[in-house]
């Protein structure tokens, strides 16, 4: 099953819409709650990243019996030093983002810790591509 969702930069009211829809789908499919949580927390962190840093983006979610594959592509400023961005505590978030309760530099590490496979690539001035997989039969 494949689903896609638009994510609008700067729209904090709608941030989490894709994650909310995916949570409903995974619950309907009777996926174990701890695995649902790993997928939706990672997706929500990624959505918030697009809302906080990019102009717009798309979330593509592909679910089969063995895994959930999530791909997020955004149009935005990109990340010049991915290694630095992956360090817990590093953040370039604005004060608006911090007022929303985010921007602590924990999003990317948390996406990685909730997923079984994780990759990120970025081009400065163009955008960021992030992909993660959660296996549904893992313990």
């Amino acid at each position: 099953m494949k689903f896609e969702y638009k994510v609008q930069g700067g729209d904090f009211v709608r941030a989490g819409h894709a994650s909310s829809e995916v949570k409903k789908i995974l619950k309907q499919l009777n996926v174990e709650p701890s695995l649902v949580k790993r997928v939706v927390v990672a997706l929500y962190e990624a959505e918030v990243n697009i809302v906080a840093h990019a102009y717009n983006g798309m979330a593509y979610v592909d679910i089969d019996a063995s895994r959930v594959l999530v791909r997020l592509d955004d149009n935005g400023p990109g990340i010049s030093d991915i290694e630095l961005a992956m360090q817990p505590g590093f953040s370039t978030a604005s004060s608006t983002v911090r007022e929303m309760g985010f921007g602590a530099g924990m999003g990317l590490p948390n996406i990685k810790s909730n997923s079984d496979e994780f990759s990120i690539s970025s081009e400065v001035g163009k955008g960021t591509h992030l992909e993660f997989v959660v296996y549904l039969n893992s313990k």
């Binding site: 904090f12 989490g16 994650s19 909310s20 949570k23 709650p33 939706v40 929500y44 929303m100 309760g101």
Partner: peptide
């Protein structure tokens, strides 16, 4: 002490 829509969204995702 954070009262905004994202606090509720976070609760939704975090069970």
């Amino acid at each position: 002490g954070l009262s905004n829509i994202q606090a509720v969204r976070t609760a939704e995702m975090s069970d």
